[in-house]
Design a protein around this nucleic acid. Structure first.
Lengths: 187, 187
DNA sequence: GTCTATAGTAAGATAGAC
DNA sequence: GTCTATCTTACTATAGAC
């Protein structure tokens, strides 16, 4: 693999584990097995590398989610498939964790791909719920945007609860609770 | 105010804004208007100070939540009051954000108060839901622990969505979506 | 493209005077 | 209790040789 690619992937991993503030160029270089000069040849610095890494992670997540949504079944089926997908729960969300990073939030260039991913996810969930309403699966009173935000929030919050407990259980409970509520509202 | 107290409060604030990894002793001293020697006289170092600050924040949050729960009304009323309480949404959760901090998660002493708060919160929510079941407000099939985890997760995830968007709206949507689902399941 | 040398700043803490 | 001096290591980058 080329050096630039190794640098991006190592940065993705480190941002996931330690965030932007907690990740040093030196650590990236070590993980990528690249020298100092090599890193600064390919990227202007930590920020540019992080931008590339965050955008890459966003694109990967989008593709993975789209895969869960794509299959057959009712809206509830498709959302359930997404919610129940295998996840590294205790590692948390690669993109969501960046919202806790002060320097990512302060830099519009770094925050943009984070904002974009969640904007896209909520829109996509709202579409599926709207389809469910049109097909008669969900009642008229169900608000697609609200419900989409609730579903996205349960996942992100589930990670928080699980990491706090150092145990996947709260995540699984939160997700199953959400699925039950969704089934309750569905006909 | 005494120096030790100022140091704790400044640390609470900085942990909230920048996390543990992003907060330096120097920044704490500046915020508390305390000298280097002063800080190291009262606390052994950054970790001990953070421990005190996290425990303090946990106790404060617990008291605030208990206040929302304490009033009159049905289970749904009380949970709704808690969900709709005024919050500094874009600042995120003071305790929840620490689950993104690698050094807090790695240190059992720092993680304990975080784990305790969320354990307590989920238990407390589950109690209220169980009361709602006993009073006939909620159906038998509703699982208190699951639903409690879902509610706690919606709040934590709502913060994540709002910060990503730099806008409180997704938080409000997620919360209202949750309230609607809860009302839907209640009789 | 990659390497080593260099550099200024900050992190996190200790020592000892007052 | 608080202050200043000092220390070691890390952060983040630049410069210039190869």
């Amino acid at each position: 693999m080329e050096t630039a690619e190794r640098l991006i992937r190592s940065t993705q991993q480190l941002l996931w584990e330690r965030g932007y503030v907690g990740t040093s160029p030196k650590a990236i270089q070590a993980a990528a097995e690249a020298g100092q000069g090599s890193m600064y040849h390919h990227f202007s610095g930590k920020a540019e590398l992080a931008k590339a890494a965050i955008e890459r992670s966003g694109a990967e997540l989008r593709a993975a989610v789209e895969e869960q949504f794509a299959g057959p079944g009712t809206a509830t089926d498709r959302i359930t498939r997404y919610l129940e997908r295998d996840r590294e729960v205790l590692k948390g969300c690669r993109i969501g964790r960046l919202t806790a990073d002060p320097e990512v939030m302060a830099d519009p260039v770094l925050r943009a791909p984070v904002a974009d991913l969640f904007r896209w996810l909520r829109d996509r969930l709202a579409e599926i719920i709207a389809e469910g309403k049109r097909s008669g699966e969900y009642p008229d009173r169900l608000d697609p945007e609200q419900t989409a935000a609730t579903i996205a929030a349960v996942l992100q919050g589930g990670y928080v609860l699980a990491r706090a407990a150092a145990d996947e259980e709260p995540f699984e409970q939160a997700v199953q609770g959400m699925i039950e509520l969704l089934r309750g509202v569905a006909r």
